[in-house]
Write a protein that binds this DNA or RNA. Structure first.
Length: 968
RNA sequence: GCCCGGAUGGCGGAAUUGGUAGACGCGCUGGACUUAAAAUCCAGUUCUCAGUACUGAGAGUACGGGUUCGAUUCCCGUUCCGGGUACCA
């Protein structure tokens, strides 16, 4: 048997496929364990070495749990619908179904090359009609429900209709777009269209006009999480706010439960904090202000009702519905001018320059407590979407209000004395209330309570909770997504497409580009027109398919339900969910929402989908640059040359074929991106350095892949290289380097296939784990991978001796050998549990070093280590396990258990410290008592040497730990 | 600005109810084997100072304080780095 990692990888990958080694059945006799990787979108560039970090970690857990006797569900599938897939298709001119199929196949190949133990028979793909049939069905269920705030759950829309026709809105506490009051008679008098419109106010999936993020370049609306700094996350295009008719999901109804549910899941604190911030709960009060000369009231939301005596003006959002009505003739032109200005400003302008702007409407509100006249302004800094879109401005205790007041010359009344709290900021909610009538002298928390009570008692408002989270816009004017399963009748009333007619598939289209706000599906006239009316032409966002996929894996081929009842009651939820932190907010939050909805309608037995979440760290890639300079030769000629990054301007240079002169730098010089595959990482004088060797340049001339082609065009920019020579006489240039994300554009993506082909999948797997804690970001570097390869080789050599023959003996193990084995069992078992994979690899190295030193070749020791290493190095383990005479796969073998009796120490090495400084160590019997230890230590000659001439004030003895003498 | 992480040799990192700081690996230095190289194996490798090999002394986990017999670990303050988020009333 040869240590030929390529052959071993191939042999066992074929074997696993053929024997379906990782097939999972819904065998309810065994305890279940569900370990899931986040759904990848199969991009055209394939996997790079950053992706597998999480896959390997979860695979180790899956394999370990399998060996530990669990029925393990460890599936993989693809998030194939959505903007990226469609944008990629448009860029490459290939139909998304084709490119998706190709990319999916590539991903699967790469994953199989890594030896990941997925049950591919359970794979799903969101763009598969058998899958999105159920996506459409789920959204249909959401559409068919409303949220009863009193029972705190979703209920069928028919029950709402029954209530409305019997009592109207009386006694109704529902999650709603706007508060409505309606009698039963009025409801019953509505026609079909009127009734449908009214119900939209309550449905959990509803259609309404709202301000949405419109992205002109992508031709679609985007959800809040798809927008970063006023630009689209995908493609970095500008985004503006526009009122549009859109489908949305009423996630706000679930805000409180999404918040509360965080208490019962095991996510990192940071991730929980992000979810909490995104939901953005704030507790405060709703206050009504009368407006002079108008019947309407101005409603504002504040978290600081205690500062109401400091409210010297009001500000409403420019888009607020009362703006037009409140504007006085004298102020009309000023307001119109301001509205034009605001309309011109993009979201990006608003975010980037933080100027104080606004205009006076001419109207005044009446302060509910003082009766004072309070001017009403409009200003950009008040957002239409948050609270009521209006505020009472308290310039003494709010930065923005203060800047506004200063600019417009408005009175500032100090209402909170913070002298007792030096350093406190406005947000700390501390201080003593002044200038505030009945609240004077109160501390802030007390005053908030008192103010709220007073306002409620006066009928001027009420306590209120507000959330930052907005309802989730769920329409896209794009082709590549699930069509909304809706048909509008001749009265424009939407009707759900019934289950037996699902899925609503996409029409075949040649040109599926989105044009100016109209969905491409509108152009598919035959598809839109049905006997019952016209189809909805909006599609769903990518999250529609990915927010419930973990349930489909439980029962992927079920044609009668999205998941069978028995299957979901067995698998229940995901025990360990592994993926990148970039999906922390949106994906996790939205699938928690759908899960809670499915719980409400009795389709899932658990309240949360993911019990424990592990966010793997990003692996960055070095981005290297070659330096271009000008060689000014003695004859005054200028020659562009490639130089080392450490060559300064003015350095004398001699370049072969050109002559000598010195280096100059001008606007044509600088740095050029160098593909990572041509860069060699070395270490010189303990400093790491990145070099371009002559051999790599020659290689770039030969190879025909993209990186080489790019690099050739770059290298044409100069005619020569100012080579340096290393110790071995090879020619190179020093490059400059920075760390960045791995991406195709930066030519720094490293393909795991390349590493596997060189070192084998097992070495790659263990090396990625050895890099450090899995949740920490780290730069990719190949330095060190040789060390892991050497370790695997040494481990192999424990089993295989001279002439590549198995050299394992049947001798009985010694106590020392058993101690090595059981120490390893304990360490690996415990550390897998802690998801501390890097220390597992170290433990294997330590054990291998020790067994090599002992020259241990005994089956009784070595065979259990094969079962331990199987999750990490599945191929080598399989090869060795078979060589030891086992017929079944090592991955079905049991996990070894450690026994304490082999771990106990006979003697313990005690550090002996004097005033806390360790001076020597002494070996003492493990079972020695405190007194025996002290006596033995005091008797030691060396210890006495340290104690001579000093008074021992105290002796601290911690059995099995240490001894410390306090001397004076 | 706010929230969340983090800072340990030349490098990746290890060390948890507070008890020998630097496991393991890389790199580097020296040696063995070899015609040579590669591979492999052995030894050394936190820094400073002192000495004769065995060694000894001092400093040391971003920085400044504190608690403690004892602090990488707990507390207070500061700096820097990474991530998220931002006119959210």
């Amino acid at each position: 048997m040869k240590f030929d990692v390529q052959a071993i990888d191939k042999k066992w990958q074929d074997y696993w496929q053929e024997h379906k080694t990782y097939r999972t059945t819904n065998d309810t006799a065994r305890p279940k364990y569900y370990v899931l990787d986040m759904f990848p979108y199969p991009s055209g560039s394939g996997l790079h070495v950053g992706h597998p970090l999480g896959y390997i970690g979860s695979d180790i857990v899956a394999r370990h749990k399998r060996q530990a006797g669990y029925n393990v569900l460890h599936p993989m599938g693809f998030d194939a619908f959505g903007l990226p897939a469609e944008q990629y298709a448009i860029d490459t001119g290939v139909h998304p179904s084709e490119s998706t199929a190709r990319n999916t196949a590539r991903y699967r190949e790469q994953m199989e090359r890594l030896g990941l133990s997925f049950d591919w028979d359970r794979s799903v793909n969101t763009s598969d009609p058998d899958y999105f049939k159920w996506t459409q069905w789920i959204i249909g269920r959401v559409y068919d429900h409303w949220y009863d705030c009193r029972e705190d759950r979703a209920r069928p829309i028919q029950e709402l209709i029954d209530h409305l026709s019997a009592h109207g809105t009386a006694g109704l506490e529902a999650a709603e777009s706007e508060a409505l009051e309606l009698s039963a008679e009025a409801f019953n008098a509505l026609d079909a269209k009127g009734r449908s419109d009214l119900l939209m106010n309550y449905r959990l999936a509803f259609r309404s006009v709202s301000y949405v993020n419109w992205c002109e370049a992508l031709g679609t609306v985007l959800a809040n999480d798809e927008v970063k700094d006023g630009r689209s996350e995908r493609g970095n295009h500008p985004v503006e706010q526009r009122p549009m008719l859109q489908w949305s999901l009423r996630i706000t109804a679930y805000a409180e439960r999404l918040l509360a549910g965080l208490a019962e899941v095991d996510y990192s604190e940071g991730l929980k904090a992000q979810q909490v911030n995104w939901i953005g709960k704030s507790i405060g009060a709703l206050v009504h202000f009368d407006i002079e000369g108008h019947d309407e009231q101005l409603d504002i939301f504040t978290t600081r009702p205690d500062t109401i005596y400091g409210a010297t003006f009001m500000v409403i959002a420019p888009e607020h519905e009362l703006v037009d009505k409140l504007t006085t003739p004298a102020q009309r032109s000023e307001i119109d001018e301001y509205l034009t200005y605001v309309g011109r400003r993009s979201e990006l302008d608003r975010v980037s320059e933080n100027r104080v702007t606004g205009a006076f409407t001419g109207a005044y509100a009446t302060h509910p407590l003082t009766g004072n006249r309070v001017p009403i302004y409009i200003a950009e800094y008040v957002l239409k979407d948050y609270g009521t879109g209006a505020i009472m401005a308290v310039p003494s205790d709010d930065d923005r209000d203060k800047r506004f007041a200063e600019k417009f010359g408005i009175e500032i009344i100090d209402v909170v004395d913070k002298t007792d709290y030096p350093g406190a900021t406005l947000k700390d909610k501390v201080g003593r209330i002044i200038n505030s009538d009945f609240m004077n002298g109160m501390e802030v928390p007390e005053a908030i309570e008192a103010a709220t009570e007073r306002i409620e008692a006066m009928g001027r408002g009420k306590r209120q909770v507000n959330y930052r989270i907005r309802d989730l816009v769920f329409s896209r004017q794009r082709y590549w997504g699930e069509p909304w399963p809706i048909i509008y009748d001749e009265n424009d009333v939407p009707h759900l497409v019934p289950l037996d007619e699902l899925p609503v598939t996409l029409p075949e289209m040649e040109d599926f580009r989105a044009v100016s706000g109209a969905s491409p599906l509108e152009r598919a006239k035959d598809w839109v027109a049905t006997p019952r009316g016209r189809r909805e032409t909006d599609t769903m966002p990518a999250t529609a398919g990915s927010n419930w996929y973990y349930l489909r894996y439980m029962d992927p081929h079920n044609g009668d339900a999205f998941v069978g009842e028995e299957a979901v009651n067995y698998w229940r939820d995901v025990d360990l969910y592994v993926g990148g932190a970039e999906h922390a907010v949106s994906h996790i939050l939205y699938s928690r929402l759908i899960h809670k909805f499915l719980f409400d309608i009795g389709k899932v037995p658990t309240r949360e989908p993911y019990k424990k979440l592990l966010n793997q760290g990003m692996i960055g890639g070095p981005i290297s640059y070659i330096h271009l300079g000008i060689l000014l030769t003695d004859d005054g000629q200028r020659h562009p040359v490639w130089v080392s990054s450490d060559v300064a301007e003015g350095t004398p240079l001699t370049v072969e074929g050109i002559g000598s002169g010195y280096l100059v730098v001008d606007e044509s010089t600088g740095t050029r991106l160098t593909p990572l595959r041509f860069v060699t990482e070395t270490s010189v004088n303990n400093e790491s350095s990145f070099r371009l060797y002559l051999t790599a340049v020659e290689e770039a001339q030969r190879l025909d892949h993209q990186d080489a082609a790019y690099f050739r065009t770059i290298l044409q920019q100069a005619s020569a290289f100012a080579w340096q020579t290393d110790r071995e006489g090879r020619q190179y240039l020093e490059l400059s380097v920075e760390q960045g994300k791995m991406s195709k554009r930066k030519y720094n993506a490293v393909n795991p296939d390349d590493i596997c082909n060189r070192y084998g999948a097992d070495c790659f797997r263990m090396y990625e784990m050895f890099l450090g804690p899995i949740d920490q970001a780290k730069p990719w570097s190949v330095s060190g991978i040789d060390g892991v390869y050497r370790f695997l080789r040494r481990y192999w050599n424990l089993f295989v001796g001279e002439g590549d023959r198995l050299s394992v003996t049947e001798e009985a193990p010694t106590r020392a050998e058993m101690k090595v084995l059981h120490t390893l069992i304990r360490k690996v078992t415990e550390d897998i549990d802690k998801l501390s994979f890097n220390t597992c690899v170290s433990a294997f190295m330590v054990a291998t070093n020790e067994l090599t030193k002992m020259n241990c070749r005994k089956r009784g020791i070595l065979e259990p280590t094969v079962r331990l290493i199987a999750p990490f190095a599945p191929h080598l383990a399989e090869e060795l396990f078979a060589a030891l005479g086992n017929m079944d796969s090592v991955h079905h073998a049991t996990w070894p258990e450690w026994r304490e009796e082999y771990l106990v120490e006979d003697s313990i090495t005690y550090p002996i410290a004097f005033n806390g400084k360790t001076r020597l160590t002494l070996d003492l019997p493990a079972e020695a008592s405190r007194e025996e230890i002290e006596a033995a230590v005091r008797a030691d000659a060396q210890v006495q040497g340290h104690l001579t001439g000093k008074a021992v004030r105290k002796v601290i003895v911690v059995p099995k730990r240490m001894v410390n003498f306090v001397v004076g």
